[in-house]
Each structure stands twice: as structure tokens, then as C-alpha cells.
Design a protein around this nucleic acid. Structure first.
Lengths: 261, 261
DNA sequence: GGAAGAGGTTGATCTGCGTCAAGAAAGTGT
DNA sequence: ACACTTTCTTGACGCAGATCAACCTCTTCC
């Protein structure tokens, strides 16, 4: 349950690097969205002061209430952000994928918890190192702003799902969301592949049934029953606890917006 | 229904201004959160290029799908952000108060609609003027980032409310939220005042019953019934369509977190 | 002052999802 | 291959909140 922290030294390398920019030899963060806006020297600085956090599936990355001492960029894997009430109810309030920023640089203590939905690898900075980087790279701040605005819009999209959609629409929305985030060419799920012949997605879900229910504001039994319905409609196929094949993404998308019976 | 746009020239004035900084003579934006980070010259530039948008209660400020041509800072009033689905369901995905940033600077078209929940006054910038301001004032970008992170956290708090709370808890949460935002010393509601003798809040709600239901993911009838319950418990008192007196904020806060029967 | 409309309340009934309980399947360690 | 644990599925039943419908309370406008 304890997060394994694996600090590492980054070496700068120019091998196989068209633009000639400095990049992290270990994780290749150069073209990551969150690193756009870093000057060459800023990139080099980032490589020097960053360290790595590797957390296995199910591990806790940070806990609500703990003091904020670092932030980072997700290199690979899926992170779930969780809010918990005093009586134990939990709501997943966000899923973060590779390239996305993770942190609350203006808060004293974390306002939510983060856990590894899959095995996760994060490129981290201490609060101080991060502030320095921000101060010296104005365009980097812009990239962070863009990331935050994107997350904000995603959160608001999900508010609509939580407040106004039926259980069936919710699950359909989730599956469309997963297919779009983890589809061909994307990173973050195990065994993902684009299969020809109508199969839009074939891979593993980054969340268990319990986690899906926590994301959708439903109970696990309801999620299970909705999966059964979608299977009966021939839209998806499941195997084991996390295996999923999306057989008809277009129809699923329609269902998620209730544009058919 | 059409937004009244009231462009105006700003004059710089130093009268009664301790720090001697330039400020907008019309709206006094100098100390607004979103203007922190502007240099003196940046402040002067902001005053020159900004214009004013005044929208009466119920008016549309911007429409989902329309091209993004401006952004701004709310000077006074309450703005509701709305997502609408193709079949007409609506969800309020955010309430914005005075001092908060309004805009989606990285989007081509608006991802949501905004309407005036009360009479609203906005200090606006064209996209181009805004980008220039951002580019020339690095710390201003930081203030925007802080605003965005704050909105993101607020959205996530509300995701918990939508996904996990009962109708009673939802309404209690809303009333606590309103009391905290529009309480004594805050701006944005009509006739707000702090009353001694156990009354935590006495003023007007910025939302109609219909809007409250759209914010809480409920139907108007349910909101009405929950108001009745809270009145029976002696926690609030209502008068007319928007009048509200919060008689026991502590108890309401407990109710919103279900820490009592 | 009364007609018309908008917004809110109240009651009766229905239903989608939650709750409770049992069991099956998948995953894990020996 | 086995036992053991965790996770998921399925069924029976109940209830919170939705739905439908009637009525009430303002406001406004003639």
C-alpha cells in the first residue's frame, strides 16, 4: 500500500532528437504537454531537479489533508482522484492520464486523495523546485493554465453526467470516455489495441467495478446490471474482471446522449 | 434577452489610493484577485483595453458553441454556467461570483453557456487584448492559474454533492455554499446582511427554484419539498420566491455532511 | 380590480436505482 | 490442483426521488 518512490538522476541526451532540445533520458518528457513552454535551460533544470515516483495498482499516491510538498506530471498509468466524506462515502472526481499535471500548487494541504488505478509512473518536483521552474519559464505557466482549464472542462462535463444522466447513459458515457482516452495510439491501459471489423476497443479497463460505480455515482450492483444490458444489446463484451471489447462505439455514443430509445 | 454591452473609457486616478497604483476609475479593479500580478503599466493597459458588459438577471452572457471572442472578470453579480444536452436536459456546472475569471482562452468555441443569475457586470477583454496582457505580465498568468485551480476544486467538490448526497443533503450544501459566498462582507446578492441573534444570513438567493434544481441534479418539486422540511426543522425561513433567512448555519452544515440523523 | 402568466407548492402515484442477501467467478498463494 | 480471498453477478424487495396533475401566490398590465 505504500508508494514506492524511486528518485533518479536524469542525464541530458541529444541522441535521436530532431530538434536538438534537452530531454529526460529516462522518461523523455521533452514533448510532454506539461513541459511545453520550458526553455532549453528550463528543460535541463527540470531534468536535474525532478525525481520519479512509481506506484503499483491500488497504491496511495497522496492523501487528502496531508501537506502539499510536491507536484508532478504523470508519465504513464491512470490516476484516480477521490473525495471521501466523514461517513465513508467516496466519489471519484477525476481520472488523470499520461502527460497530465498532478498537483495543487496553491493549497497548503491536499483537498483530495489520489490513488493508482493502474501501475503509475510520475515525474515529480518538490514544491520549491517547481515554483522556481514556474518563475523562470513564463510559457510553462501557460501550459499549466491550459492543463487546468482542460481539467476544469472535463470536471464540468462529468457534473452533467452525474446530475442528469440515467445509469445506462452513465455507463455508456464512461465506456466512450475510456475508448477515447485509451484507444489506439494512446497510453495508459494494458493490452490496448485497435481491432478492425467494427471492434472499436479491445483492452483492459483502468478501473474495477467498484471504482466505476464510484466514478458514476452508482452502486456496484447497478453497474453490473448495466453491463449485462449493454452486452445483451451486443455493444460490448467483457472477459474477466477488467477485460472489455467495445463492439459498437457509435451506438454507445448515441446511448450515452439518449438520442435513441 | 440580449446582453447590453456598455463599452467605456477608463481614466487613471490616484485619488484615495494608498499604494499609488493605477486603478480603473469605473470599477476599481486594482485589488481584484484576477488583476493581481499586473504591473503598473499592465494595469494601465488593462484599463485602456477593457470594456464593460452589463447583463440583466436572466440575460444570456455567452452561448455554448459560439466562437470565443472575449473573456473577462466578473465585477458584480452571480453568473451561472450551464451545460445542455441535445434532448434539453440542463445542468448548472458552476456559479461564478465577483472577482472570478470568466472565459475559455484555449478553446475555439464555448464549451458551455453562461447566463446572468442576478444582474451582472463584467470587465471584458477581447481575446487579442487579453493574450497581450497575459504575455506581458507573467504574474498575471499565475493569478489566472490560481483562479482556475480554485474553480477546478470547487467543481470537484460539487461532483461529490451530485454523485453521493441525498436531496436533503444537497439543498443543505447549497444553502451553506450560498451563505459562505454571499454572507456578510461578500458581494453579489441583493439585501444581504448579517443579522445578530442566531440568524446567519438574511437576503435573496441568487437562483430561482428551477435553477437550484438544475444545480443540484434534482427536480423542482423535490427542491420545494426539501425547503419545506428545512423550514419545519426551523433551520431556514423563506419569503417570496427568493427571500431566505438562514437561522441555524451550524446545524445546516452538519445536515449537509450527514453527521446527524 | 380582475385577467393572464410565471413561478412555486402540494398531493398521489410510479419507477429506477438502492439495499440486502446469496452465490458464482476470477484472482492468488501454496 | 487446491483452498482462500477478493471481486463480480444475480435475485427479491423497498424507498427516495421522479412524474403527473391540480392548485396557489405573486406580479403585471389593462
Amino acid at each position: 500500500m505504500t508508494a514506492k518512490c524511486a528518485p533518479h538522476r536524469h542525464s541530458s541526451s541529444r541522441s535521436g532528437n530532431r530538434s536538438g532540445k534537452v530531454e529526460c533520458a529516462y522518461c523523455g518528457v521533452r514533448d510532454k504537454a506539461a513541459c511545453r513552454g520550458l526553455s532549453d535551460s528550463g528543460q535541463a533544470e527540470a531534468n536535474t531537479v525532478s525525481y520519479r515516483k512509481v506506484v503499483p495498482q491500488g497504491g496511495v499516491i497522496l492523501r487528502e489533508g496531508d501537506p502539499v510538498a510536491w507536484c508532478g506530471v504523470i508519465v504513464s498509468g491512470v490516476v484516480k482522484l477521490v473525495k471521501t466524506s466523514s461517513d465513508g462515502r467516496q466519489q471519484i472526481v477525476g481520472l488523470q492520464f499520461g502527460d497530465e499535471f498532478l498537483g495543487q500548487p496553491f493549497e497548503q494541504s491536499w483537498r483530495l486523495s489520489a490513488e493508482a488505478a493502474t501501475d503509475v509512473d510520475i515525474c515529480c518536483f518538490s514544491q520549491g523546485a517547481f515554483d522556481g521552474l514556474r518563475g523562470r519559464n513564463p510559457a510553462f505557466e501557460g501550459a499549466l493554465l491550459q492543463d487546468a482549464m482542460g481539467s476544469l472542462d472535463a470536471a464540468r462535463d462529468w457534473m452533467f453526467v452525474l446530475g442528469r444522466k440515467t445509469a445506462e447513459e452513465k455507463l455508456a458515457s464512461f465506456l466512450v470516455f475510456i475508448a477515447e482516452r485509451l484507444g489506439p495510439g494512446k497510453s495508459g491501459a494494458k493490452g490496448v489495441q485497435h481491432v478492425t471489423g467494427g471492434v472499436a476497443f479491445d483492452g483492459e479497463l483502468p478501473l474495477s467495478r467498484t471504482e466505476i460505480s464510484q466514478f458514476l455515482g452508482l452502486r456496484i450492483e447497478t453497474v453490473s446490471r448495466q453491463f449485462k444490458k449493454l452486452k445483451a444489446l451486443g455493444l460490448v463484451d467483457t472477459s474477466g474482471n477488467r477485460g472489455i471489447r467495445i463492439l459498437n462505439l457509435d451506438r454507445l455514443r448515441e446511448l450515452s446522449e439518449s438520442e435513441l430509445a
